[in-house]
Design a protein around this nucleic acid. Structure first.
Lengths: 354, 354
DNA sequence: TCGTTTTAGTAAATCGTTTTAGTAGTAAGT
DNA sequence: ACTTACTACTAAAACGATTTACTAAAACGA
């Protein structure tokens, strides 16, 4: 039985091989760094170099564990293959889904990205873009974050609504989303519909509200101002929706359906509603937004407007890459629209007594 | 009515000021880049430079919008103030909470980080560390990911269990967690306890299982092998827990409590259990793990073992920063342990008929 | 054989900073 | 008057790659 050398403690702390650079490699091979660079990058002018030499170079690079210094390379070629990503915060579910989609594109394009959360703090919103630019990111992906000024590099804003030269917005078709949501509730017979608006700072808040408003008017019903509440605070917990709904319920107004700003707040709302002795969906229907993973498995399973967050991230990334490839003022679209879906589950039902 | 100049198309495309570097600044000021650098970085040797000159420099830097090139700077000073972060995937809730904690430290330390997801693909697990090292990250934070070899830079592994020279593991006190969980179920009278183990690839799976196993034995009960199931697949949806629990239920064994690997799978499990006509917690108690945001608001509210993920991320970051400051072989602890909490809510209850 | 082309490389400039090692010119000390 | 010290700077060498512009030798063409 061969002795396991795996744990031969004397060998454990192997000599930490100092990373070898092009210079040491060139010394070892007795070739200039020029030649090495040409060969290793398979530059066109390396055709004249015989295969034998090339092989020697590759072999030595592997053997000495050569690691090109990407910093030096980036400095010289003036490309970092790096994007900056600005999000409100990482753990809100929304951002991480978008990032997920984004990364699926970037990884295979050889890009990395630096992430920064602004936590809705104005000072960070101010400094983060500058810091990222100093780090020579080639573009910015901004998620659910207002961008007023126009930094001098390509930007894609996911859920951005300002029209700014040089920034492309990736947005949901909110009109369609509102039609789906309100249409669904209307078709179930609901006329007294409460709405939880998003936080002041959330990019989608206004557009969402306006489209919902339009969709109800179009059906000849008006939303009682007493039935409108707004999320406040920046916790990614259902707590916010819970509190908001509590205060809505305390007004004593009756309503048969509630359209929440997102699934997280819908979940909080359900708890609040049930705590007052009402049942979802028998007494009040609750409609969410986003279709997060948990939505399908909540009790009751959430009826919701699905927003293709992964796709939005993916789209943002490919668009930014396009902008880079096509030069500065290429005519990429100013706005890219993705479509929502109505996912009917168990949290909405026909109104009981019409 | 004042005309809205917002859309005055001629002004829209403002001249994109080319970012000015030290050289142009020096030309403009008729001072050497040396002087500028000294002053702008407030180097000790800048004492001899009169305040008037300094002011001129600062003023010009602001006016011309000088942006130091961090790449060049990093290359020269051999510090990037950048970490690499390796996670299984971004949208699993676990990683993003850890990242959140991590970022809270890094941001104020002037560090940025490059994130990469390996999606459990062996090729990515192989290449990602190399790519990050080429980009000159100063350290690696690895989340819920096995690390066998020892790259030559400081590493902190969140939920890492291998003992490797040079890497510090941040781990939960699993023994304590198991004691809390099993103790709670035991105290409620449960003796036939089912367990959902984590996925094969999850770092915590083995340790979690072993400690649970020990905690039950310590109480003189043994877990029926028929009551052990394991998650399979890498979706961050409750679907996995649902499927797993379905198959558990189909075995026809009876059990009065279920200890799930995490809250997400617990939520799936509850759905599966209720679909067979059983009630949670009346017929079977379900115990989760992690205490994600949704746990408190699920129906029934999840009793769970809270894992301080934010804190673990925070700890990982400060530790890595320490390792950097104290030089290579500083004696940072090999393992940092954080403590779990039992959060009793509504998904567990006393056994009905003893 | 002479001129041209090809082969197989190399020296040096470059990217944008920081940093080391000075250098004039003035002021102070003795 | 002569050293010494300080003031206010600057030239040039890093950092580690890439890239432009060469070169010496060999091969080829006429």
């Amino acid at each position: 039985m061969p002795e396991k050398s795996k744990n031969s403690t004397s060998e454990r702390t192997e000599p930490r091989k100092a990373a070898v650079g092009l210079k040491q490699l060139s010394k070892h091979l007795k070739l200039s760094t020029t030649t090495l660079s040409l060969v290793l990058n398979d530059a066109p002018s390396a055709v004249s170099i015989p295969q034998e030499t090339k092989d020697r170079i590759f072999a030595a690079a592997k053997e000495l564990n050569y690691r090109p210094n990407y910093l030096a390379r980036s400095l010289r070629v003036q490309r970092t293959h790096t994007f900056g990503v600005i999000v409100p915060e990482l753990s809100d579910g929304y951002s991480s889904m978008v990032l997920n989609g984004m990364e699926s594109v970037l990884a295979s394009a050889g890009f990395f990205y630096l992430t920064a959360s602004h936590l809705h703090r104005p000072d960070l919103l101010e400094t983060i873009p500058r810091l990222l630019i100093e780090r020579q990111v080639e573009g910015l992906i901004v998620v659910d974050t207002p961008m007023h000024s126009r930094p001098d590099l390509p930007i894609v804003n996911v859920s951005g609504h300002e029209e700014i030269a040089g920034v492309t917005n990736v947005v949901l078709n909110h009109m369609h989303a509102a039609e789906l949501g309100i249409g669904h509730l209307y078709d179930l017979g609901h006329r007294r519909i409460a709405v939880i608006k998003g936080q002041e700072f959330s990019s989608d808040t206004d557009e969402r509200w306006e489209t919902i408003s339009a969709a109800t008017r179009r059906r000849g019903i008006d939303i009682d101002p007493q039935l409108i509440v707004q999320l406040d605070g920046d916790s990614p917990s259902p707590e916010l929706g819970y509190e908001t709904t509590k205060s809505l319920l305390s007004r004593g107004q009756n309503f048969t359906a509630l359209f929440a700003f997102n699934d997280v707040s819908a979940i909080g709302a359900i708890r609040a509603i049930e705590e007052t002795g009402l049942m979802v969906p028998d007494d009040v229907s609750v409609l969410g937004f986003d279709d997060i993973y948990a939505a399908a498995f909540h009790n009751p399973a959430l009826t919701t407007i699905r927003q293709p967050l992964f796709e939005m991230g993916r789209l943002a990334a490919v668009t930014l890459l396009d902008m880079l490839r096509d030069g500065f003022d290429a005519d990429v679209p100013r706005v890219l629209t993705v479509e929502p879906d109505l996912i009917v589950r168990k949290s909405t039902a026909e109104i009981r007594k019409p």
